[in-house]
Amino acid sequence: MPKLNPFRPGSVISPGTFVGRIEEIEVVEQSLLQTRNGNPQHFIIEGERGIGKSSLCLWVDYLARGDFTYDGKNRLSFVVVNTELHAAMGYDDIVDAILAELKRQIANRQPLLENCKKAWDFLSRFQISGVRYDRPQPLATNNRRLDELTDVLVDLIEESLGAVEGVLILIDESDRPPSDAHLGQFCKLLTERLSRRRCERVCIGLSGLPDLMQKLKDSHESSLRIFNILELKPLEFAERMMVIDRGIDQANTNSDTPIEIDDDAKRLIANLSEGYPHFLQEFAHCSFATDTDDKITCVDAPVNASKISLRYRHVVGC
């Protein structure tokens, strides 16, 4: 029977095997709790390629939905609008992507369909006007779409009757669109419109490469001021070792033959990764695949890992 390789290079890591990021998670938890209580706190998850931004976004998604507790016993209940951006998207494309995902999320929650009549009335008629991300960027943004999104969010919060504690707009790959897509302006204007409408239970979370900061600033000089910026650093050595252990444990729950890995091999993989979750998964995956005797040693690890290290460092620019 072939062994199930638990390591997933190039894939988002599920919350069940997520390791580290304790400080960042605490900030996000507080952001959501503050938002739930009418004091919205927005955040940006920023870092290099392969550092684990998308995996942290998925963890935040699960937390906000209430799929697990934030303090060991209590859960949140947010509508999570989780989307990602593309390189040629413009201002209206970004708003349309959020509206489309919001429509999908409400459609999947029967209590919201029954209570949020005004919000659903608009969303049920909403159609994306063709997916064309290569159209020229307008000289000035069209705030009609932003006003429509604002109305929907206000109606959703007001009509939910406590079924929803808040809305989290979670945008991954936020660095992809150019500065003239005006993502920074969108965030600033949306938060101001919601505040004027006394709708204070909407949180915005962005995730992207370091150049996201400059793009937001180019779009709106003061847009960065509304965010807590969380810069992801490489995992600590102990956290890298824990990732490997959890992978081996996962493999053994699905295998009749126990798989082992010696400490030297774990240390080698952890050191070669330099704390980048992508490299850690890649090196561990290849070492697991190379093993033929159900005991991973340094003989299995370095041959593949050293080659992959050179290839992927070139790809991600580390």
Rank of each mutant, 00 (worst) to 15 (best):
F186C: 01
T253M: 05
M241L: 10
S309H: 09
V202A: 00
R193Q: 15
H220A: 08
S222Y: 12
R240S: 13
G275C: 02
I261A: 01
E192G: 09
E236M: 10
G275W: 01
L224C: 10
E200S: 07
Y276K: 10
F283D: 01
M213F: 13
S273A: 03
A181W: 04
T297P: 01
I296L: 01
K307C: 06
C187T: 15
E239L: 06
Q185F: 06
F186K: 14
G205S: 08
P302F: 07
K215W: 03
K217P: 03
T297S: 01
H220K: 13
L183Y: 10
S306W: 06
E236V: 13
R225Y: 08
D218V: 14
S174K: 05
K266M: 04
L272R: 12
A305M: 08
T290C: 05
R311S: 03
N304K: 10
I226Y: 11
A265W: 04
S273C: 03
C199A: 00
V303R: 13
A301F: 02
E221N: 11
H285T: 07
T257V: 05
G184R: 10
N304F: 07
S179H: 04
T297F: 00
L232T: 02
G184L: 06
D263Y: 12
R225T: 11
C286H: 06
E173N: 13
K307L: 04
T297I: 00
D300Q: 02
V299T: 04
R225I: 08
S195R: 09
L230N: 08
S223G: 10
I308T: 03
S287L: 02
C199Q: 00
L209E: 09
I226D: 11
I296Y: 00
D300E: 05
D249P: 08
N304H: 09
F283H: 02
D211N: 12
A270W: 07
R201W: 06
V202F: 01
N254T: 09
F227Y: 06
F227W: 02
T297R: 00
E192W: 07
C286W: 09
M241N: 14
D175C: 07
G208H: 12
K188W: 12
D211F: 07
R225G: 10
A251E: 14
R311M: 03
L206C: 11
C298V: 14
I204H: 07
R311L: 06
G275F: 01
R197G: 02
P234T: 04
I259Y: 01
T253S: 05
T290E: 15
V243H: 03
S306M: 00
L310Q: 14
G184Q: 11
R193L: 09
L183Q: 12
P234M: 03
N252R: 15
N252D: 10
I308A: 10
L216V: 08
I248T: 07
M241E: 13
L189A: 15
L194S: 09
Q281R: 10
E192T: 12
T253G: 09
F237W: 09
L272T: 08
I259Q: 11
G208D: 04
V299W: 10
T292G: 05
D300A: 00
C187W: 12
L183E: 07
